[in-house]
Computed example of a mutant assay.
Amino acid sequence: MTSAEVLVQVAELAGPWIYGTFIAEDDAPAAAVSTEDAQAATGSVNGQWIVATGQGSNKTAAGYTVSEILNGARVTVVGTTDRVSGTVSIAEQKMTSAEVLVQVADIATDNSRRDGQFRGNVMDAAAFPTATFTLAAPVDLASVPTDGTAATVPVTGTLTLRDQTRPVSIDVKVLHSGDTLVASGNVPVDWSDYGITPPSLGFVTVDDHGTVDFLVSLTRA
């Protein structure tokens, strides 16, 4: 074997290690409620609320987090969009109804090829344009502080992806700052439960599970 052939073999063997050690990077984690610039609450939580843009660290965003092996390196991928809408009803400090809709075709990462696979083969966004969370049972918000700190409350609902609806139970972090409500959470998902087949294309293999992530900023309707 010539020295050139040895170098080629070394490069082939070391390539994935080099990529994983020096090139591949995890994405930033999905957004979560921040109390950095929070204020004391003004007014009651009761009333009708709608999803708004938000501000600072608490800008509305939703998407997914998944782990994949890319060119031999394990990386965490986070896709997000701010194309989120929805409504929430609260009475007697209990959230009685809520629906949040996410525009799937607008969810993006830092890789256009990955996004093309996600919108096409994975999620078929043309046929199933929205992902939806719907509240299934009232949520007691009496424990949410009014001093600009946050509380975590259990929430049950349904999640719809690709027209497949499944029950979910999650812990949601809630902040009442000024006259704004902010909530965030991560829904664990086995993709097969929703008829979703993660890509396995040789150079990339995506895990069969991940999370659906959301941070919603709410203002009064």
Rank of each mutant, 00 (worst) to 15 (best):
Q103Y: 09
V189P: 02
E92D: 15
P154M: 00
R162A: 13
T96Q: 11
Y19S: 01
T53P: 02
Q93H: 12
T109S: 10
I18H: 03
I196K: 09
A131W: 02
V174G: 02
A98Q: 11
Q164H: 11
P16L: 04
T81G: 08
N46Q: 02
D208E: 14
V155N: 00
T81V: 09
N111V: 14
N121S: 14
V6P: 00
I90Q: 08
R166T: 08
P145H: 05
E5F: 12
A142I: 05
V33A: 06
V206S: 06
R220K: 15
T149A: 07
V84A: 06
I170D: 01
T156M: 05
Q48Y: 05
T109L: 08
W49F: 09
V122G: 10
A28Q: 14
D171F: 00
T53W: 00
A131N: 03
W49R: 08
A11P: 04
P138T: 03
L135Y: 07
A108C: 02
A151N: 05
F214C: 07
D140G: 06
E12W: 13
E68L: 10
W17P: 00
G86I: 10
A73Q: 02
L141Y: 03
I69E: 12
M1F: 11
G43F: 04
V10H: 11
A52G: 11
A151L: 06
V51P: 09
P145V: 03
V33E: 02
I196T: 06
S177P: 09
Q48A: 13
S97P: 07
S57D: 13
D147Q: 08
S169T: 15
K59E: 11
A28P: 11
V204A: 14
V144L: 08
R83K: 12
P138Y: 10
V204P: 04
F203C: 02
T132P: 05
A136R: 00
A142F: 01
V212I: 15
G86P: 10
V51Q: 07
R74F: 01
S67E: 09
V139D: 05
A14E: 12
L141C: 06
D124N: 14
G56F: 09
S192P: 01
S44Q: 05
G72C: 10
Y194M: 05
S89C: 03
A150V: 03
G157Y: 06
H209C: 03
T180P: 01
V51H: 05
T81W: 11
T81M: 09
G63H: 10
D115N: 12
F214R: 07
I23N: 08
I23G: 10
A73T: 09
